[in-house]
Design a protein around this nucleic acid. Structure first.
Lengths: 356, 356
DNA sequence: ATGCGCGAGTAACGCGCGTTACCTATCTGG
DNA sequence: CCAGATAGGTAACGCGCGTTACTCGCGCAT
């Protein structure tokens, strides 16, 4: 068996790289032949015998291709870059997860670079430019931009040298394809669920009314109510800071404002953090969930929704799916295929738990 | 000004790469000269004049170095790889954040590959091997392994071809350097804080007693008590599932077991999720936090700790710092420097909020 | 005038691999 | 017996860059 006894041995590759040449020598063929069998070339005329001989040599030497050299020679890197503030503000990590998984499936590598776009036009505007630049230096085949919350962003000019897809955000001026949650449908889903449970008077704890999430979700809520022949009472829509405290205060406001018979029987909280605060307000008043007041959230922040008592029914933001779809879209773009639409909406599924 | 009027123009690099050769031609020098000024070579004798001429050419053509080619030629990739289940189970993302930031500072690139080690010896044991292999194909200079929770792991053999550091986990058999939280000191910190607030009878909601986190934190708790001349009453240590429900039940158990005068006045919950459940149990009984019962957690899961009412005082797991330290250690290793210790403990700082 | 050192730069090799063009031996049909 | 096809390869170029060795002109001491 062991021909070359002492020197190299499977798994114990020598320090600096076994190359194709080594494999070729070991197998007694040309390097070209090795390259052909390793890349599974179609019209390669290599006899079955030498093919196996080469494969054995690969095993024996523990050969491992050099991705960089391959990229240089083939002019394709198999890398996508994603620049995201998620690394800096870990809320929607699932975007990365989804993208990562999909990339892995496609045998692509995802290079992750941090961005500070969160501080918008702030002082470190330069950072994401640097990130983009670094990624382009790696000759990524495409770029992804991901935001922690749905909003408009400004993409560095240089990014446009390469196919680019936006995830959970959209290009303020340009025409870059983007993947965003279908906030409107999500809002509709939430309210429909409450209506279905028999609620007719529904309080809404709103977010900053200017952001896409608030606009869309509220619109969806109105639609659902309209379908049921109801209207959204403006007095029942109270804004809150997007925190538990904000939710608590908003909930107090709603609960204390009306005599019991006029009090809403359900609360649609536009995010789970506020729902968390609303829980406290409700419990404080000796009311039960969902018996006296049903609560439905939005976002499906697992750490909150799955651990509140009772567990929170909520509408999920499809981060993971958006990430995956982003990579798929990018793959299509880099392959020269036309994309489906400029802006792809991803549905927000309802997660039934116990608060409705 | 504009000499070459039509063709290339800043920012609008032609599709497939401006190379050093182009820059050299544009500046009327050799490619070597360009290489020298771009890499800021020490003993390069390049006149100030040609130096600026070259830099101008770089600007004018929008030249961008090709990282792959550079890596190939220089035999250094400037890449670290991190394989982690965090991508699949995003709990300790801050490890990635810390590592990423530090790598960025060091001008290194962090390649992130997913692992499924969470299911230990499960069916997809192969995945992380594949991940490691992929990273090695990229010729990363070093490898990081990160786990979502502190525990022993098994590292693929192939990883040992390259400097490797473990974060938030340790090598069961081998001698790989690792970075882990100082659980013992953290446990001590928590209990000392309670003692300082005057509590003498402290209940502990434990985790699975076999995991390093539980072992260490409990040991620290004992030490702190011993320092105060107290002992940990075994009856006051009740195990719980690491969830809110688990914490709820354990807290009920403790609170209902004793008459008021014997009841503990403080609860040390070994993680924040269980503290979340404990809150409910306490509130349900009409008790206040921290008035009747003080609560201290562990982990500092922001989404929980910062949003509970009252906000939860807790001991933080230093994920970000561990990530950064991991990269620093790796940098030292790859530079051939000896490392400080085989296992580096990172302190767990107390985060004062309002529950004690 | 000669030699020597130095500033300023260049030619050329190699990194590991994909790829194209070519080459040789063997078989087939006429 | 020979043209041509086909199986089974190989030589050699280039990808973009780092790096070493070398060249060339010039000032200065001998």
């Amino acid at each position: 068996m062991a021909k070359t006894t002492t020197s190299n041995h499977a798994g114990a590759a020598r320090q600096r790289g076994v190359t194709m040449n080594d494999v070729a020598k070991h197998a007694g063929v040309s390097r070209t032949a090795v390259s052909f069998v390793l890349s599974n070339r179609e019209n390669a005329s290599i006899s079955e015998e030498t093919r196996t001989r080469i494969n054995e040599a690969v095993q024996a030497l523990g050969y491992r291709p050099n991705a960089g050299a391959r990229a240089l020679a083939s002019q394709r890197s198999d890398w996508y870059g994603i620049v995201t503030e998620i690394v800096t503000a870990p809320f929607a990590v699932d975007i990365i997860k989804g993208a990562q998984d999909q990339a892995w499936l496609d045998r692509k590598f995802l290079l992750i670079a941090p961005s500070d776009q969160a501080d918008a036009v702030g002082p470190n505007q330069g950072l994401e430019d640097a990130a983009t630049e670094k990624l382009l230096e790696q000759r990524v085949e495409g770029l992804l931009y991901a935001a922690t919350f749905h909003r408009g962003v400004h993409v560095p000019e240089t990014a446009k040298e390469v196919p680019t897809v936006l995830i959970n955000c959209f290009d303020a001026d340009g025409k870059l394809p983007s993947i965003v949650p279908d906030e409107r449908a999500g809002g509709r889903t939430a309210v429909e669920r409450l209506l279905q449970a028999g609620h007719r008077r529904i309080g809404v704890i709103n977010l900053d009314p200017a952001i896409p999430a608030a606009i869309g979700r509220l619109e969806g809520a109105r639609e659902a109510l309209a379908d049921a022949g109801l209207e959204l009472d403006p007095e029942l829509v109270v804004p809150g800071y997007a925190t538990a405290d904000g939710g608590y205060e908003a909930a107090c406001h709603i609960l204390d404002r009306y005599p019991q018979q006029d009090r809403p029987t359900a609360l649609f909280c536009l995010n789970d953090r506020m729902a968390m605060g609303a829980y406290d307000a409700i419990k404080e008043r000796g009311l039960t969930i969902p018996g006296d007041i049903a609560v439905i959230g939005f976002d499906n922040q697992e750490l909150i929704a799955a651990y509140l008592r009772p567990k929170l029914t909520t509408v999920a933001l499809p981060f993971e799916k958006m990430g995956a779809l982003g990579v798929q879209t990018l793959a299509a773009l880099t392959a020269g295929q036309p994309i489906v639409a400029d802006q792809q909406l991803v549905g927000c599924p309802l997660l039934e738990r116990s608060s409705v």
